[in-house]
């Protein structure tokens, strides 16, 4: 345990973010050469023949993926199938064993973890400022952070310590921290997993709203199929190290869970999951 933490701290102390993750000044859309609609500032992501092994165990084995700028993609799959690994590879937190990941330079990708991971010794507003790194003055960063807090419905809570917030509020601070630098790609790894059902639903609404306002490319890992269908344009099922199912969700937003179309899509994904479960190695 201790040595793990130590190794982590050691590597962290030497860490230099890969080029893709360094926050460059915003690039004008024309320069990117993408055919981006003005409201879509999302990054285009393409992954080809991506494979990852930990020691001898293959986790991902040939993932091909093209994600349109500004789209909302949900990744589902059974526990241990490599969803988090895929996300961490895309964000440059792990190095691929083979294959490639293309993400435009200056995409300013951000990651929301399952746990809020707030610094307990920093006020809420300073936690959000972490998302801005070294840009501008401290006062300017705090002002920006306060605006991001207002966006997630936490106006005026900037001066609180994280320890006094509820679980849902903490996760909203984490979301504000990820959004404050206006990323073009946002990766969320089961960000709502630890929340109760009611908080979950209101947080889903919040995630959808900020995505529609800011038009980043969103990658959401979730184990909740109905959450995936409620939020995403496209649902991807990872199984056996590969993409086992890739469907578009063409339902009008905001989506209502009761409708037959919703239920039909949900059933398709669940069937694919169960099929994979029965045919694959049981847990």
């Amino acid at each position: 345990m201790f040595t793990d933490a130590l190794a982590m701290i050691e590597t962290a102390a030497r860490f230099v973010p890969p080029d893709d993750l360094r926050r460059d000044p915003p690039v004008p859309f024309e320069v990117l050469g993408d055919h981006l609609a003005p409201q879509s500032r999302g990054a285009r992501l393409s992954v080809s023949k991506l494979a990852k092994r930990f020691g001898e165990t293959p986790v991902l084995d040939g993932i091909d993926l093209n994600i349109a700028p500004g789209s909302f993609v949900a990744i589902v799959g059974k526990s241990g199938c490599g969803k988090s690994t895929l996300l961490r590879l895309i964000l440059g937190l792990e190095t691929p064993t083979s294959g490639r990941i293309d993400l435009p330079a200056g995409a300013a990708a951000r990651f929301v973890f399952q746990e809020p991971r707030l610094l307990p010794w920093a006020k809420v507003v300073d936690n959000v400022s972490v998302g801005l790194g070294r840009t501008g003055s401290r006062a300017a960063r705090r002002a920006e952070a306060a605006r991001a807090l207002a966006d997630v419905g936490l106006d005026g809570r900037g001066d609180a310590w994280p320890s006094v917030l509820s679980g849902g509020q903490k996760q909203r601070v984490a979301l504000a921290r990820a959004l404050v630098s206006r990323p073009r790609l946002l990766a969320l790894d089961e960000p709502l997993g630890a929340l109760d059902a009611l908080t979950r639903i209101s947080m889903q609404g919040l995630v959808e709203r900020v995505w529609r306002d800011q038009r980043f490319t969103a990658l959401l890992v979730t184990h909740d199929v109905s959450e995936a269908i409620a939020l995403a344009d496209r649902v991807i099922l990872v199984d056996g190290g590969r993409i086992a199912l890739d469907i578009d969700v063409d339902l009008p937003r905001p989506r209502r869970r009761g409708t037959p179309a919703f239920a039909a899509l949900e059933k398709r994904v669940l069937d694919a999951l169960f099929g994979g479960f029965e045919g694959g190695d049981a847990i």
């Binding site: 610094l119 010794w121 972490v130």
Partner: peptide, 28 residues
């Protein structure tokens, strides 16, 4: 050694360099 490795990873992901990581995460 008992600093939460998850916070260290967060700092890393958010682009902190070695000094910032030390000052904002490890030392506190």
């Amino acid at each position: 050694r008992s600093v939460d490795p998850q916070l260290v990873e967060m700092g890393r992901t958010y682009g902190m360099n070695g000094f910032e990581l030390f000052g904002q995460v490890i030392l506190p």
